[in-house]
C-alpha cells in the first residue's frame, strides 16, 4: 500500500514503514535503547532524504522516550535534579547541532558528515562495548568478580570545580563534565537523528557512577526533552519534519517495543550487552562499507535549488 509523504515528497510503502518501526521498536524495547541509530540509517537506505530522516526521527524518539519516562516516573526511578542539569546542556547541544546540520546541508556535505559520524561514533562505542562485554562474559565463566574501586582513588575529572550534590543518585560531581557530556549528546542527536541513550547510559554509569536504579530513567528524561526541542527546531529552521512519516514510525514503534521488552527479560546481562554491541558495531560497518568499497556509481546528483 503506497502512501505519499507530504514533506519527503515521495510515495512510500506504508506496511514497510510500519514494519520497520515495529522491528526497530522491538529491538529498542529489548535493549532499552531509543533505536534512533538503527532507524535513521534504515530510513536513508530506503530512499528518504537524509535531512527528512534525521528531523523526523527526532519526533519518533520523543514518543518512545515519553513511554519510558512515564514508566520510570511511576517507579520513582529517575533523578530530577540530575535530569534538569542534563536537559539544560542537552538543549544547548541540540541548538548548536541544528545550526551545524543546516549549514552542512546548505553547502552539500550533510550526507558525508552523517556517514562519517556514524562510522566514528557507532564504531568506537560498538567496539569498546564488544571488548567490555566479551571480557565480562569471560570473567563470569571463570567466576571472577569485577574489581571494585578502592577508596581514595580518583580520576582527574573528579577534581574539577562547581561540584553539585545529587541526592537521589547519591553522587557529588562537578557540573563541567556533566555539561560537556549532555551538550555532546544533544549535538549528536540533532545531527544524526539518534537519542544517544547507548552513549549516555554507559557514560553516566562508568564516569559519574550514577546508580543503575535511576540511570535509565534520567537519561530518558534528557533524551525526551532534547528530542522535543530538536523536533521543533528542525521544523522551524529546515522544515524537514514529515508528520505523516513520524506518525507511521511511532505507531509501528509502540507495538514493537512492547514485545521487545518482554523478550529482553529472557536474556542474561552479559549476553545482552554483547548483542547490543554487535548491533551497534554492525550499523557502523554498514556505513563504513559505503566509504571503503569502490562504489559502482561514482557520481551522485543533488538538487540544490528546489524547482518551483
Amino acid at each position: 500500500m503506497q502512501f505519499y509523504l507530504p514533506i519527503a515528497e515521495l510515495p512510500i510503502d506504508v506496511l514497510m514503514i510500519l514494519g520497520m518501526g515495529a522491528a526497530v521498536g522491538f529491538i529498542s524495547g529489548m535493549f532499552g535503547v531509543g533505536g534512533g541509530f538503527l532507524m535513521t540509517p534504515l530510513l536513508i537506505f530506503v530512499g528518504i532524504p537524509p535531512a527528512v530522516a534525521v528531523a523526523t526521527q527526532a519526533a519518533q524518539i520523543a514518543a518512545s522516550s515519553t513511554t519510558g519516562v512515564m514508566n520510570y516516573w511511576r517507579k520513582r526511578a529517575l533523578d530530577l535534579k540530575l535530569g534538569a542539569v542534563m536537559v539544560a546542556g542537552g538543549v544547548v547541544g541540540t541548538f548548536l547541532g541544528v545550526l551545524f546540520f543546516n549549514n552542512m546541508r546548505r553547502i552539500g556535505y550533510l550526507e558525508t558528515v552523517i556517514s562519517l559520524s556514524y562510522v566514528a561514533l557507532l564504531g568506537s562505542v560498538g567496539a569498546s562495548m564488544l571488548v567490555e562485554s566479551a571480557r565480562a562474559i569471560h570473567a563470569s565463566r571463570k567466576g571472577v568478580r569485577p574489581a571494585r574501586r578502592r577508596a581514595g582513588q580518583h580520576a582527574w575529572y573528579e577534581g574539577l570545580p562547581f561540584k553539585i550534590r545529587f541526592h537521589r543518585s547519591g553522587i557529588y560531581v562537578s557540573v563541567i563534565p556533566l555539561t560537556v557530556l549532555s551538550v555532546f549528546i544533544g549535538f549528536a542527536g540533532a545531527v544524526l537523528g539518534i537519542g544517544g541513550g547507548f552513549i549516555l547510559v554507559p557514560a553516566l554509569i562508568y564516569i559519574f557512577r550514577v546508580p543503575a536504579a535511576v540511570v535509565v530513567g534520567t537519561s530518558l528524561l534528557q533524551i525526551l526533552c532534547t528530542m522535543v526541542f530538536a523536533t521543533v527546531m528542525h521544523a522551524a529552521t529546515n522544515h524537514s519534519v514529515d508528520v505523516v512519516l513520524a506518525l507511521l514510525l511511532i505507531i509501528g514503534g509502540v507495538f514493537g517495543a512492547q514485545f521487545g521488552a518482554r523478550a529482553g527479560m529472557k536474556i542474561r546481562g552479559e549476553h545482552f550487552r554483547l548483542l547490543l554491541a554487535i548491533l551497534i558495531f554492525g550499523v557502523a560497518m554498514r556505513f563504513a562499507l559505503d566509504i571503503l568499497v569502490t562504489p559502482a556509481e561514482r557520481y551522485s546528483v543533488t538538487l540544490t535549488e528546489t524547482p518551483r
Binding site: 519526533a59 514508566n71 521544523a235 513520524a246 509502540v254
Partner: peptide, 25 residues
C-alpha cells in the same frame, strides 16, 4: 504549514509524539 508556520508545525508534531507515547503507557 511546515514551510510557513514551522514552529507551530513542530510543536504540533512534538505534541502528537508526546500524546502517542503517553497513550502507549
Amino acid at each position: 504549514a511546515s514551510r510557513e508556520r514551522g514552529v507551530l508545525y513542530g510543536l504540533a508534531t512534538a505534541l502528537m509524539a508526546l500524546s502517542l507515547g503517553w497513550l502507549a503507557t
